[in-house]
Every structure is written in C-alpha cells, then in structure tokens.
Computed example of a mutant assay.
Amino acid sequence: MLTLRNLNKRFGSRVVADDVSLAMAEGETLALLGPSGCGKSTLLKMIAGLVAPDSGELRFDGADVSRLPPERRGFALMFQDFALFPHLDALGNVMFGLIEQGANRRETAARAQAMLHRVGLAEHGKRKVWTLSGGEQQRVALARALATQPRLLLLDEPFSSLDADLRRQLQGEFRGLLREAGMPAIIVTHDRDEAFALADRVAVLKAGRLLQCAAPQALLAQPADAWLARFIGYDNVGEQAAIPPAAILLGDDQPAATIVELSALAEGVKVKAATAWGELVLTLSAREAARLGGALFIGGKIGMGVDESALLRFR
C-alpha cells in the first residue's frame, strides 16, 4: 500500500532521514517510535506532503506521490494540538473536511453527526470546541479526520497532551475505531507503551535511521542492538545480548551477588546487584522479596546468576 524507498532529508548539517525504506500493508497501523529529534515527525510530514524529501521515492497503491501536493494525496493528518477551529462548534469542525471535499451540506451534516456518535460525542455537536475537555477535543479531531474517509490517517503524538488514565482509555477506543473502519494509519510517538498498544508493527528510528521494524512481540523477542533494547525498556543490556527478567536466576545455588541499590515499589522492590555479569537490575514481587528476608539491604548478599540459553542475542 505505502512504500518509502531510500528517503533522505537534511536540514543543514542535521540528518533527519537517512536512506529510510519502509512498507506498510493495507489496513495496517504502523508506529514511528523514537526519541525527540530522531526524524519521526519529519518522516510523517514527508508522507503527508508538507515536507519534500531531498531524494528517494514515496508510493501509495503503486503510484508515485512524492511530488503531489498534500490536498491531492487523500491523506488526513492529525496533530498533537488537534488544530480545531475555535469559532466552530464540534459538528462544524467535523463537517469542515467534508465541505472541502464538495459534499452537499445536508449529507455533510448527517455524516458528521454519525461520526460524532461513533466517538461518543453525539450530544456535543453544538458545543464550541473550547468548552470541551482535552479528551473530548481529541475525539472531535479524530472524528473530523475519519469523516473524510482518508486513504491513510497520519497522527503526530495524538495523545501526548492528555493525562495517563485518559490516554490509555482513548488509545483503546482509537484502536477499535481503526479496526472497525479498516483504515491504515501511521502514528508518531516517543512512548514505547503507546506504540506497542496501538500498532501492528513498530518502526524504531534513531538520528534519522530506521533501526528495526517489526511487530511489538518480535521487537521484544529480538531487538536489533543494545541501544534499541534499552530504548524499548530492557534494564539489563550487554554488548551482545539483552538479559530479560526470565533469564535471571535467584537462589542459593547461584553465585553470590552484592546488592548496591534498593528501590521500594508499590507491589515489591527493585534490586540492583553487582554480579559476575556486571550490575543487574531485577524487580521482585512482594512475595519474592519476603523469601529473601534479611538479605535485602545495601551490601547484602543474594544468589544471582544468568541462564545463557534465555539471552536475547542481537542480530
């Protein structure tokens, strides 16, 4: 469906896209994940047509769209600030894109109202958007994007301005809406949990380079390198492999390790210990911590080893 081939982009001496090649399938949700400044938002803007690549090719359904203006690509772009029109009510905001497409006003109003109903705002159509909560504004922006039935939905940090509980709720609703519509989408985020919750595949970028693109479980099972392993959440990473929690062995039959840090958690404790494998971090449940008893103090000794067969070796 969408194919990026050898895309390159520089702003002065800064490289924001370094020979990026990527393909996504029909109906797929793809996340562009990486730290701030890695080039993920610029890549999204190149797909949208807001930024021109220096070189490379961008195809959609087999056609080269690299030189098409944004309005001729048939894509919808949703920014993190929602970009709603404050002088319009919620219904008027959702109708806007349909009117731009040339639909008649009666049909437009009916389609927009139906979309507000789908996002749970059927009773809010006449409210000015500045009177809505952040979560409600996000739903209006999403309804506006979906109402135009774009060929591809592009979202730049769409949930970043919301609090954690609301963000998780809306992520679940959003995933369901995309599945229902069968609409392909690309989501830019710096949040690993968000990428893994929403996307079929996750493309991890660093300094303009695409390091790895895979399903969340595949990324966790075989990260490409040490940097990527740390970025997606592994605490214990060596030069050749990541050490998942399941690979860390505890018990009197393991080599003695010295506790160097302890952090209390809501449901247990986080332990850092100096071992033959270097300093390893492990989160223990309250039950596991209780079994270790009086050994859990700075300088205390516990048996800790590593099951080498369970290491996640880099490619």
Rank of each mutant, 00 (worst) to 15 (best):
D200M: 04
L153I: 02
A215K: 12
D156F: 00
L210Y: 04
V188K: 07
L228Y: 13
T189W: 08
R201P: 11
F231M: 02
A181G: 00
V202S: 10
A207E: 15
E157L: 05
R167N: 07
F159W: 10
S160V: 08
Q149N: 14
Q169R: 15
L205V: 07
Q169A: 14
A224V: 15
F231Q: 05
S161V: 11
A215I: 01
R175C: 14
R201W: 09
D165V: 14
K206E: 13
L228K: 08
G182I: 07
A221C: 06
Q149G: 01
R168N: 08
R151D: 10
R167S: 09
D191N: 14
I187T: 03
L219M: 13
P158V: 07
I186T: 06
Q171H: 02
A215W: 00
L210I: 11
V188R: 08
A207L: 13
D165A: 15
F174W: 00
A221I: 04
W227M: 08
A164C: 00
K206W: 13
V204Y: 07
A229V: 07
D200K: 13
P184F: 07
A199M: 09
S160H: 03
L146G: 01
A229N: 04
P150T: 01
A221G: 12
E180V: 02
L228M: 13
E194P: 04
L146H: 01
D156G: 00
R201I: 08
V202F: 03
D193K: 09
V188D: 06
A195T: 03
I187K: 02
P158R: 01
D193F: 06
V202N: 10
R179S: 12
